[in-house]
Structures are given as structure tokens and as C-alpha cells.
């Protein structure tokens, strides 16, 4: 009874324009990218779209490009590619950490960066990464392209700023610079599960170890992916002593508003936001200073 999805009509889009037009025309349509969240949802009856637009055959949406001002990640880039990329491992440890902790290697072979971000579950890992890295989301719709800031992108659980006939095509990440470092820490019931709590931290420090900029994104810390903005503002301009990190992680905890569920009671999750924020910042700092 559970393994069988409801019926839907199926179309393969061969270009972004075609996909957008199909999404615009078809009734109750959904984008089929990696399908690793959508298909389980359809099997369990949580989603029953009338039509699916398969974007997997659109050429040139699967790329990692750091030749310009930012790291550009094509929306169809498979999570496994992020795991295997030396560029990501070396220059974007936050993304690498997170990618390696998403579900399992088989799911990562199909799951895409764009899909993980657009599913926008509170338990998905990449939204927090995008928030921490102040990413830009590039979307195409019937009236052309627009660029959205990650901080505005995640409206609610399973809801983003994208219109139903818009397609996310690219995510832009500020380019790694000297003094940058990041880390993603995730507490799980078992490997590959949705996070009990996850914390994404991205730092830039100057030669004296003073924080120039910082981003903190939280997974499973609210009903949607959230940014620990108060902690961020408080950290800028400070040397990252243990006391400073304590204060920052308390602020992050105060930002969080997790739900009690089978992954743990809300008060535990709140406490874990604090613990993991502290640890993630510490690791990010170490990496920013040229450590591991």
C-alpha cells in the first residue's frame, strides 16, 4: 500500500526554457531532479503531483565552476560529485562536510544540490550550508532569471521563494579566500538520518584571528532552515576566544526553536544547537587558520 505512488503524467525537459514552460503549462506539476526526497514522499502519499517534469536530461546543469567571482554549482550537480571533488574538499570544507553526511552514498549518487535545497525540509543539510555561506540562488521562470539571497529563499518547511513555474538552475557560493574556513557538524540517530540538529559555520578571519565575517546556518533547529543572525552579528570584529564562542553559541541556541519529535525533545535539540555551534565554530576557525 505504501510503496506505490499515485499516477502522474511524465515529461522529459531538454532545456531550462522547456522545463519552465512545462511547469508553467502543466497542472499541478513538480520538478523531478534526483528524486531522492520526492519519490519517497510520493510513495508514502505525502505528495501526489499530477505531472512530473524530469530535468535530469537537461545538458549543462551539472557543474562546479570556480573560474569567476564565485563558486557556481549547477542545480543538477549530484551530491556524490561534491563528496568526490578535490576542489570542494580543499576550498569549501563546509560543503564537503555536509555533502558527506547527506543520507548515504547511493542516495548521494542521484540526489542533487538543487533538489536538496529546494525540498527545503528543516532536516535537509544543504539549506543550512547555503545560509551559512550567504549563497545566491539563481532561478529561471517564465519572465526570465532572478537571483535570490539564501537568507530570503527558505520561506517555510518545504516552501521556498520559487514560484511553481520557476526552476533553480544554479547556486553561487562566495569564493574561498585566504582566512576562510567552514565546518558542518551533524548529530544523527544513525548515519544518514535527518539531523537531530546540524550546524553549518563559515568564518573569515584576519591575520590576527579576528572575525571579519561569519555565517551560521542551522538544520532541524526550527520548522525551517534558519540562520543564526544574532550570533553572526555578535561575532564580527571579535577574536574567537572560548568565551566569545560560548556567547555566540548561546545566541544561536536562543535563535532556535526546534520541535520535539522522535529525534529528541526540543530542549535537548536546543542544547545541542549550542554545543554544536561551539564545536563547528571552533573547527571552522582552525581550518580558517590553516589547520585541518
Amino acid at each position: 500500500m505504501f510503496v506505490i505512488p499515485d499516477r502522474f503524467s511524465y515529461t522529459v525537459a531538454h532545456s531550462v526554457e522547456e522545463a519552465v514552460e512545462l511547469l508553467h503549462t502543466l497542472e499541478d506539476s513538480k520538478v523531478l531532479a534526483g528524486g531522492q526526497s520526492l519519490i519517497p514522499f510520493m510513495k508514502l502519499g505525502y505528495a501526489s503531483p499530477k505531472s512530473l517534469v524530469d530535468i535530469n536530461r537537461i545538458p549543462n546543469l551539472d557543474y562546479l565552476d570556480d573560474s569567476g567571482e564565485s563558486l557556481k554549482i549547477g542545480a543538477l550537480t549530484r551530491i556524490s560529485r561534491l563528496c568526490d571533488s578535490e576542489l570542494v574538499a580543499k576550498d569549501y570544507p563546509l560543503i564537503h562536510d555536509a555533502a558527506l553526511q547527506i543520507a548515504d552514498p547511493l542516495v548521494r549518487n542521484l540526489g542533487t544540490f538543487g533538489g536538496n535545497v529546494c525540498h527545503a525540509d528543516m532536516g535537509d543539510d544543504l539549506p543550512a550550508v547555503c545560509l551559512a555561506m550567504n549563497a545566491e540562488m539563481v532561478a529561471s521562470g517564465p519572465s526570465g532569471q532572478r537571483v535570490l539571497a539564501a537568507k530570503d529563499f527558505f520561506v517555510d518547511r518545504f516552501t521556498t521563494l520559487l514560484a511553481s513555474d520557476e526552476l533553480l538552475t544554479e547556486v553561487r557560493i562566495p569564493k574561498n579566500r585566504r582566512g576562510c574556513g567552514g565546518a558542518y557538524l551533524k548529530l544523527e540517530r544513525r548515519v544518514g538520518d535527518y539531523a537531530i540538529v546540524g550546524v553549518a559555520a563559515q568564518l573569515e578571519v584576519d591575520g590576527d584571528g579576528v572575525c571579519r565575517s561569519v555565517g551560521i546556518g542551522l538544520t532541524s533547529a526550527s520548522t525551517k532552515p534558519i540562520k543564526a543572525s544574532e550570533a553572526e552579528s555578535w561575532l564580527v570584529g571579535k577574536s574567537l576566544s572560548d568565551e566569545v564562542l560560548d556567547k555566540a553559541s548561546t545566541l544561536a541556541m536562543n535563535t532556535s526553536n526546534p520541535l520535539s519529535d522522535i529525534r529528541g525533545p526540543a530542549e535537548y535539540k536546543k542544547a545541542m544547537v549550542k554545543v554544536l555551534t561551539h564545536r563547528a565554530l571552533k573547527l571552522a576557525y582552525k581550518r580558517a587558520r590553516g589547520g585541518l
Partner: peptide, 30 residues
């Protein structure tokens, strides 16, 4: 084989276009 309906168990793993995937989480048409 099929062991679950939530893409957790991997009993249905096959290699599709060179990479291992859970064949319960792919539509045949794909």
C-alpha cells in the same frame, strides 16, 4: 529485492549508468 518503502534499506540497489542507486527511488521511465 525490496525491503522498505522509505529508501533506507538498499536491498534494491542496482548500478544505473555506472553508479549504484536505489532502484525503488527511481522511476523506470527515467
Amino acid at each position: 529485492h525490496v525491503g522498505c518503502d522509505t529508501s533506507n534499506c538498499g536491498a534494491c540497489t542496482v548500478v544505473l549508468n555506472g553508479r549504484a542507486v536505489k532502484s525503488c527511488t527511481v522511476f523506470a521511465v527515467q
